[in-house]
Each structure stands twice: as C-alpha cells, then as structure tokens.
Design a protein around this nucleic acid. Structure first.
Lengths: 210, 210, 210, 210
DNA sequence: GATGAATGAGTTTTCATTCAT
DNA sequence: CATGAATGAAAACTCATTCAT
C-alpha cells in the first residue's frame, strides 16, 4: 500500500549501490542506474536531487546498517577482549551482508575535497562524517578500556583505532562469494578477522608490554 | 644526458598522481593535470598514449617503488617473525614516502571491470596484476614459514595475507602529515603498524593456538 | 594571419547576439548558436566558459561599442543643449548600427537576481554594472550642467536620467529596417529621438518651469 | 460564492507574475510558481493549459488593468495637452501599482518569433497584439489631435508614439520602491514622467515648430 | 480539485582525443 | 616537442507535461 513509494526509493538505492560498486562511482552514470532499474533517468531525479545526493544516501544507508548491527553486539559489561571480539565479528558479518553499500562508502571515504557542492550536499557529507565518527567511538571506547585493564597493549590509540577498522573492512577489497554456504563462509571470515584484530591488540603475557 | 625527457615524463607522473589523489581518478581531467604542470594537454599526450595509460603508469610506478624498497628489507635467513617485522616496517615507510601514488593505486585496485580498453592498456593492467601478486608472494612466503615453524598461528593464509596487506596500507586512508619531524613520525607509525600486524599473527604461548 | 583566431571568437559573438535577440536569451541554446555558425558546441565552449559568460561578453561588447561612439560625440565646451543633442543623436545611431547586441543587453539588464553563478561570471556582471553606470554618468553630467545654466528644467535628475536613457533605447523595442536607405533612415530616427529627448528637458520660456 | 476558484486562479496569476519577473520567463519553472504558492504543479495545470497560456494570461491581465485605468483618465473634450498629461500620469500610476505584471509583459513584448505553439496559444498571442494596439491608439489619437491644433510639434507620429510609450514604461526598468510613502512616491514619479513626455511633444513658442 | 510519480525530450557542460601549425 | 583549436560523444540535470489515484 503506502509501501509502494518507499520501495521505489529503496529500489533505486539498491541499483545505485550495485552500479557504483561494479563500475566505480564516477564511471557509473545515472543512465546506468536507471537502465538497471528498467526505468528512466527522470525517475531517479524525482527521488534524489543529484548524483551526489544519491551517493551520499547510499553511504548513509551503509553506515546506518552497520550501526544498527553493532548496537546489538555491544556489551560493555563483558570483559573488553570478549566485547571487542563480539563487536569485530558482528562488524564483519554485517559488512559482508550488504557489501555493495560498503564498497561504495569506502571508495569515497578516501577522497577529501569535492568540487563545488550545494549546501544540501554538504549537509549530507557532514552527516556522514558525524555518523562515521560515532561508529568509531564504540571501538575507541572498548580499546581504551582494554588498555586500562591491562589486557590490551599500550598502543597509540588513534593510529590503532583507524587501522583496526581498516582491517575489519578488508573484505571490501577482496571478498568474492565462493560456491560454499554463504552463512558459513561469512562466519568463517568474520572469526578469522576478529581473531586477527583481537590478537593484534592483546598484551603478550611473557613480554612486558611492547 | 637523456635526462631532460625523463624528467619531463616524471614531472607529469607526479602531477598526475597528485591530481588523481586529490580529485579522484575520474574527476581529474587531463586539463587539470596539465594545469598543475603549467603546461598544455598536448605535452601530456606526447608522453602518454591515453589517460588510462597514464593512470596505469602511475600505478606501476607505485608498485615498483614498493617492490624496490621491500627487496632491501627481505632476509629469509632471519627468523620469520623478525623478517616479517622488517618487511612490514619497510612497507609502511615506503608507502608514506610516496603516498599520492599509493592512494591512486588503492583507489583503482578495487574496481574490477573496465570498459573497452585498447590492447596496450590491457597489457598494462595485466602487468599491474602480476606485479601486485608478486609483491604479495613475499609476504605469503614469510607467513607460511612462520606457521611452519610454529611461531605464527595456523591462520587461513589467503584471508590473512590479503587482510594484513590491507592493514599495512591503512595509512592511505587516514594519514595526514602533522607538524612534527616527518621522518620520526613515519617511523613511529611504521613501528606501530608492523607491531600490530606481527602480533596479529603470532601464536600465543598459553593458548594452544586457537 | 593572427586574425584568424580573433575572428573565430568574434564570429561566435555575432552569432550569439543574433540568436539571443531572435529567440530570446533563455530560449536560444548553445546548439542553436553553433548551428548558425556551422560549427559544434565544442567550438563555442572552447572560447567561452559558459552560456552565462558568453552572454556577458555579448553585453560587454554592446556597451563598449556605445561608449566608444559616445566618446567621439561628447564636447563639454559646447552649450549643454547642443552637447546633449549630439550625444543623444550619436547614441541612437550607434544603437541602430549594432542592434542585436543592444537588444540582448536590454533584455537582460532588467533581471536582477540570478541563480548560482560562478565567481568568474559574477565578475563579468559586475564589470557590466560598472560600465553601464559610467556610460550614464556622461548624460548625468550634461543634464546637471543644463539645469545649472537654466537651459533645462529643474527635474529629478535620477528619474529623468534613467528615463531619458530608456527613451533613447526605445528603437530596441520597435525598430525594423524598412526598405529605404539605412543610413538616411537611421539618421531620421536619431534626429527625431534626440529632439524628443532634448525638448523633454528644455525649460519653457513662458512657464516659470515648475 | 464562486469566489473560491476565482481567488485560486488569481493567486496563481500573482505568483506567476512575480516568478516570471524575478527569475525571467524561461528561467521560472512551473515548479517555482507552485512552490511560491505552497502548492503543487498539478494545481497550476488545473487552471492553465500550459506555461505559455499562463504567461499570456499574465500579460492579458497586465494590459487589461492598464486599459481599464486609462479609460477613466481619457477625456477628449479637454485640450490635447491636458488630456495627454492626464493619460500619461494615469498610465504611470497604473503601471507602478501592478509592476510585476508589466515587467513580464515588457520582457516578452520584445520577442517576435515563437516556437511551435498550439492554436489556443496563438489565439491568446493574437489577443495580446490586438489589445496592445488598441491601447496605443488612444495615445496616437491625442497626439494627432495635438499636432492638428498646433500645440504639439509636427513629429513622425509612428516613431514618436512608440517611443513615448516606452518612455512612460521606463519605470519597469529601474523602479524600486524606496522607504517613503508609496502613494506619494508613485505620484511624484508619474508627474515627472508625464511632464517629461508632454514637454517632449509640445511645440516651442519661440522656435517655429522644428 | 488536487497530488505525486513518472516520462522524455532537450539543455548545458565536460573531456578525452586528434590535428594542423 | 609543444600549442591551441576543434570535435564528438557522453554525462548531469531540467522541466513541461501526463496520468493514476
């Protein structure tokens, strides 16, 4: 019923994410996106003010999905290493489940200065910046906690935080579903990466810190 | 000497790397690159057959630089954990020293399907693929060695190899030179990341690995 | 010789002025202008940064032509009424000689607020504003002089200045060359309008002005 | 009353006149007009068949307003110079009272050739042409009368008529309400312009015609 | 009456590339 | 070697208009 229009918008978002991912953000044209929908450019522009706005909406969707997933995994009452592992694991499975969106987000997160953007587009970009920062804060908190309790090494928090997040996003660069059971495969990868990240942080009992 | 033209070519390469990095590969036009050189498009086309070729040459330069640096650090007679640390450390310092080139390379390494390219350009792309794989092989070898000798955990080599390389490339996503002594800063970051990567791989004495 | 490229630019300017005049500024597309030249849109954009810049250049050309003509007619050593008549007459003949440009200028001089313009385009608009004001100043001066010497009525200078200029531009709204000798026709019209404008200003001997 | 719909139609007309004036006729979109009304495009299309029809209706409204006002001022029993002054004065006050409409009318009156228009739109345009001509006839008549009685100079009627009307429309090009009492301000301007126009026509007692 | 979605044709603009000089 | 003009194809975006509800 009233879902029709919501669907229309979301359909476009999906098609856009896939096109951006496959062809690259700049290389994918609005026509490409429309063609994938079996629709016209006009339809896209009826729902999104510009290509930039469409891209930003794809990215916001990506981040919101991750945030919602992470929320469910977080438990600061657990020991930091447990909590961290759970968060990292959930991060990876969420990432793999809506990969196109995250490939797009990552592709763009890199680039800083845009050409002339409208105020509206600048606002969307600011929104993205804020959401990304907030997302990182949960990880920053658990890492700080782990260092405090001595279970994590005394790392430079800033460098480490950003780098660990890049590590957990790594599948964006190489994941391609193979034939096997997707759920199992995703779980295997999530475990491997979460373990990798956790070990990177853990203090080694023999060596005093360092 | 025939240095004049070599310089001219390298200047273009530098300008291209910076433009591609700052504006994004597609968004940067040949005009932008020429303008940065204080020259005209004609000069660029004298040295490079097409934008695609120029881009590939930037990427090849990026990889060659890294390979040359890594070569100097590798020593398979060292214990794997020592060798790995040295390689990782060198990877990061080399990366930071010519960051624009690597930002460009990373930006593109993601994307798979290209439009119609000329045979010449396809050959350059194949060259890049080969060089990248070769580069990774050195790391694959030291990781395999470490697992064999029991000093590294029994990880899924493929997932881990790619992910560790992404981790070591992480500065591409967040590095911005701060005021401090660049050499010192780059060394500090390289140490942090190499340690992070090494710890991620090391077997833990207490736990019977994982 | 080196005139070729100057010609190319001026040819475009001419074609643009004619198209803008005949079809209206917004209705005339760059394609229309290119078609009239037997050229491509690309050629137009090679010489002018945007449609707005092209339009502004047409207008600047219009004003510069008028200014150069007026310059020759001005002589502040003459009695104000003589000087005014000469200026007005010259204004009209200059106007009629390059009518397309002035129709375009008038068409736009009306509109105030533009959408988002680039800094470069804003600069051109400012240039136009300044040139137009300067042009008017010559007339303001002779009117003020005439009032001082008592040969002109004591009018509200601002209202009168602007209105008299509109009157002298009136042919823009109705002139269509008829069969007769153009030079003679233009002279006849210029005399009629200059006389009209002069009489509008002159003090009437019998009536104590008002 | 059936006033509701009349109001709705007039509201649209007002909004259209303002948009056309501020942004230019072509630049103002139906969306802009609807937005100004706080309504949707659909509402506009309910009352007006097309953008061209809406524009023509604005122009017809403009002319009808002027005609109605002029009607009240005309009195051919008065001496021509008196009658002319009254008509001119009334023209200006009527103009100032509904300026947006007249700015739109003037903006378009210039342009001759239209693209392909529907028969209905062509009919509206013809209506406008007729009404404008009729409006001018009243002035043509009083001028002819004045020349006959010798109170006006022996001008070329056609050139003079059109030019005097342009002069009386001049505020369209420069009027901007200042702080002062609007009625007084408008009266002051109307007097200045009517006097200007009248003097332009009057025979000078000393000089035998010329 | 009014709305919101959708269309399709057109418009401005960009840009890699070619070529004569 | 290098320039500047020119091209042609494609891209982003606009908008009057139609139509189902």
């Amino acid at each position: 019923m009233a879902r029709k229009s919501a669907n229309s918008r979301d359909e476009i978002l999906d098609a856009a994410a896939e096109c951006f991912m496959e062809m690259g953000i700049e290389a994918a044209s609005i026509s490409d996106i429309a063609r994938r929908l079996g629709a016209t450019k006009g339809r896209v522009y009826h729902h999104f003010a510009s290509k930039g706005a469409l891209l930003s909406d794809v990215r916001i969707h990506a981040i919101d999905t991750m945030s919602a997933a992470l929320e469910e995994a977080i438990d600061f009452d657990l020991p930091p290493e447990q909590n961290f592992y759970n968060m990292a694991h959930r991060h990876v499975t969420a990432l793999l489940k809506t990969l196109p969106y995250h490939k797009v987000d990552l592709q763009k997160s890199n680039l800083s200065g845009e050409k002339s953007t409208t105020p509206y587009e600048r606002e969307l970009l600011e929104q993205i910046r804020v959401k990304r920062t907030e997302y990182g804060e949960a990880f920053r908190k658990v890492i700080a906690q782990g260092i405090e309790t001595g279970v994590f090494r005394k790392v430079q928090v800033s460098v480490t935080l950003h780098s660990v997040l890049v590590l957990l996003n790594a599948p964006v660069f190489w994941y391609q579903s193979r034939g096997e059971d997707p759920a199992a495969e995703q779980n295997r990868i999530a475990d491997e990466l979460a373990t990798l990240a956790l070990n990177a942080l853990l203090a080694r009992p023999d060596s005093a810190t360092s």
